[in-house]
Design a binder for these strands. Structure first.
Lengths: 201, 201
DNA sequence: GCACAAACTGGAACGTGTTCCTATTATGGG
DNA sequence: CCCATAATAGGAACACGTTCCAGTTTGTGC
């Protein structure tokens, strides 16, 4: 795996290049949604994005970078959609956190193959993808701390610690789900249990 | 990926077959320890175990099955070594759980490449490896519940739930560590935080 | 001890991620 | 506008997981 990073939007000077990048991520997204991790084949992505294979590798140095970048883009969209809600429903922190998790999870479980592709990529990513991974981790943590303490400017250290633990459980549960080792219902129940243990008000 | 399971020791009739299986797992272990996931190449394993490639695939239907089986064998050894201790040290459940986790983690972190190989395999495993994965999950859960309530015959439902959450955090932390996204110290600290949150006596 | 089935060997072959190379096309400075 | 440089296209080539096959060895029931 390469040491290079994926090219971000800011790295790209011309409009044509930004468009190529978008076409590549769109193609990745669509192939992942249709056939999961295995269907995201680099030659297929290049074809669909109307880009040469070498160009694809110039933009994203590996299949993993490509998928994790696609995951980061989806997460940003999901976070924006939650951020535009006036308030997360629920009387307790636990209820609000579960709401956010369920909403995010349901979005993902509605697209099982996409989720499989992105989760696998996330789990398989090595240090060279740390930048992209960190983006996703921060987004998730901030979604959760905001649900825990709506309106607060700065989450407490304990809030962040709890959010990270919940994020870990969520990832593990997602992995178990996408790999067919547990059902969607089990995934949800396990998450609720974990949140209940961590946020007993 | 195949639907078949790995051949377990009980499936193998003759001593020669049990010996082949052992040679294969030993070769896997050694290659993983030397060079991690990438170094565990099926041709290399077959060569080192002095077995034909087709035979290797008869015993373990994929590289993932092979590595997860190797992980299961290591876990059994680790659990036995802890089980032979008179008592896990520590006054509180949290202290005892942290002791067990640290001991297991240290064993793994002493062999970073091995751990990388096994963790990656675990994360990448799909439903066809469910049997092998389940074995590992049960071992981990029982190690933890025993540390929480030493001497108890049956762990409570809450004990099991907590143990599973800790297991999830541990896996996520391990993944972050083997992929170079966090240091060993951070991994340990994160685990301690999570255990502290879950087991406040 | 024989005949048959199962297991094993050795290696070819295929698919997909990745690398590399050459020719062609954009891009930006003078 | 022209040149130098970078970016892209198109595709061959390589590595490794996996499958498959023909021939040989091992194990089993009689």
């Amino acid at each position: 795996m390469s040491t290079l990073n994926s090219l971000s939007v800011e790295d790209l000077g011309s409009a044509a290049q930004r468009d190529r990048r978008k076409r590549i991520l769109d193609a990745t997204y669509e192939l992942a949604r249709e056939g999961g991790f295995d269907a995201v084949q680099m030659r297929a992505v290049a074809d669909k994005a109307e880009v040469a294979l070498g160009t694809l590798y110039r933009y994203f140095p590996s299949k993993i970078h490509l998928l994790v970048s696609a995951l980061a883009r989806e997460f940003e969209r999901s976070q924006k959609s939650i951020a535009t809600m006036d308030a997360v429903p629920g009387d307790t922190a636990a209820e609000r956190v579960i709401f956010v998790m369920k909403r995010t999870t349901r979005g993902l479980q509605g697209d099982p193959r996409l989720t499989e592709a992105l989760t696998r990529a996330f789990m398989f990513a090595d240090a060279s993808v740390a930048t992209e991974i960190h983006t996703v981790g921060m987004l998730l943590t901030s979604m959760l701390t905001q649900a825990m303490r709506p309106g607060a400017e700065e989450p407490t250290a304990e809030d962040v610690a709890i959010a990270r633990v919940i994020g870990d459980v969520w990832l593990s549960a997602l992995v178990a789900w996408v790999t067919g080792r547990s059902t969607a219902a089990e995934t949800g129940a396990h998450l609720e249990t974990a949140v209940g243990l961590l946020l007993r008000d």
